[in-house]
Design a protein around this nucleic acid. Structure first.
Lengths: 257, 257
DNA sequence: GCACAACTCTGTACAACGTACGTAATTCAG
DNA sequence: CTGAATTACGTACGTTGTACAGAGTTGTGC
């Protein structure tokens, strides 16, 4: 994994690939594949392994029965392939029902994204870049804005509200998925892990519960309530309710004036 | 580009390193270094490069004037080194002032973390779960809980409120830093990138503004308001205000009952 | 029909990574 | 003084993205 992302960041090629508007070749051998084939194979690999690191040029090529270097015919590099994967996955998002009201619409959007992230956990392992402005990502933003249209917010506020809600989903889904991945790769549940960690911590005077009274009380209570050290699904729905309440306060202040 | 995972190894060794309680060696050559030296060098590298990928065993060793394999004397592996780096950085966090009230205290904590993430952007490149068990991470959680202690919330709610606020900081700071890194590595500002991307998008019928009326209107408005395609600092403070308002609604409902 | 340009596909190669392994050097307990 | 413990290091393996050069394939202009 060399950290250097090749590519001067040429928008033309990236956008053409995302929108599928590259002209078909006029000469040369018939391509064995399409860019979409490569993207689908990469998504399948990431899904199966529950890990974006499983998406290597060599493995995608192998899955497609083609030499590694051939992939560079369809995709400029690995970074751009990840961008394409993201927009591909965003195509699975759906529109909320009509005339739901902003609160129900935002809730539906948030739940939809929450589910998407759990279907494709690798989405949250990729830092999105500018070139991820494909058709499905565009449509996603448009739907999000439609949910808060005409409720008394200014344009800048609409953008911020949408960023706030989607950010909450990303943040809590990331916790959820990182945690699930950790349980899977370590082979230990939270309880099992704590069972091994607790005696070690107990030997350390500085880690005594007396030094961290709230942590030990609240941490224990939360752990027992959720049957785990953390419960991101609870934080997601709890947080969404708080955020929506907060947005309601803002709307009330706007429409009251 | 892709994420970086930290430790899932043996809890005992990991915890001993985090709390610095390993017994000094009784025989053998004097160690040239300490674990803290290694952690400091790694943090310096990550800070300087603004990238966790710069922290390679080989480079840390070079910085310390030591062979790569010697580092394994002080640290079980790269994953555990990342754990240690995180707790080390958490040591820079400060306590909010006394008797501020929950709202000011949570705001101070959020701003403190926002600043920390901007001082050490690599913190958000490492996926953290169970290993937040060092002394400074413990203290961080304790301070967060203290901010919402005694305001009428139950233990489980206190935990959720704290997770909500810190999640907001992480989410918006991540946007901010990913964006800054992108500008740096691509050498293009948002405006410059759009200047090159716009003509390409204009050639694509499906990408016409008529298909995305709200996106084009709101996106333009937000872009002009912030002088950039996105302004995570604004979303952070806007979002924090909404979240605090939402928490206030919850507190009111608790104390009213 | 033919030459050539355009295009696909592949093999080889390189630099970088984490780290397993074996070994030499150093220090202290007995 | 000997042996055990510990540090330090050189070598080596398997992995990664992808640059490069060349071979094979096809449509176009003549």
């Amino acid at each position: 994994m060399t950290g250097v992302t090749n590519g001067d960041g040429d928008p033309r090629r990236a956008i053409e690939l995302l929108w599928g508007v590259s002209a078909p070749p006029r000469r040369g051998p018939k391509p064995k594949l399409t860019t979409a084939d490569v993207v689908r194979a990469a998504v399948a690999l990431a899904d199966a392994a529950d890990d974006i690191e499983a998406v290597t040029i060599r493995r995608v090529a192998e899955q497609l029965g083609v030499s590694p270097m051939s992939l560079y015919t369809y995709v400029p590099g690995r970074a751009e392939l990840l961008d394409l994967m993201i927009d591909h996955a965003h195509g699975e998002l759906t529109a909320p029902g009509q005339d739901l009201g902003w609160r129900a619409a935002l809730t539906a959007i948030a739940e939809d994204q929450w589910a998407l992230f759990h279907r494709h956990p690798w989405l949250l392992q990729v830092t999105t870049s500018r070139s991820a402005l494909g058709p499905h990502s565009f449509a996603k933003y448009e739907r999000e804005l439609r949910a808060v249209e005409g409720i008394g917010l200014g344009d800048v506020e609409m953008d911020a509200v949408v960023a706030l809600v989607t950010g909450l989903v990303r943040s809590t889904a990331r916790s959820s998925l990182d945690h699930a991945r950790l349980v899977r790769t370590s082979g230990m549940t939270d309880a099992q892990w704590w069972q091994r960690a607790a005696p070690v911590l107990a030997e350390i005077p500085a880690a005594d519960a007396a030094h961290y009274p709230l942590s030990s009380r609240v941490g224990t209570a939360a752990g027992e309530a959720h049957n785990a050290a953390e419960d991101p699904a609870f934080v997601f729905r709890f947080g969404l309710a708080r955020v929506l309440d907060g947005i309601e306060v803002l709307i009330a202040s706007r429409t009251a004036g």
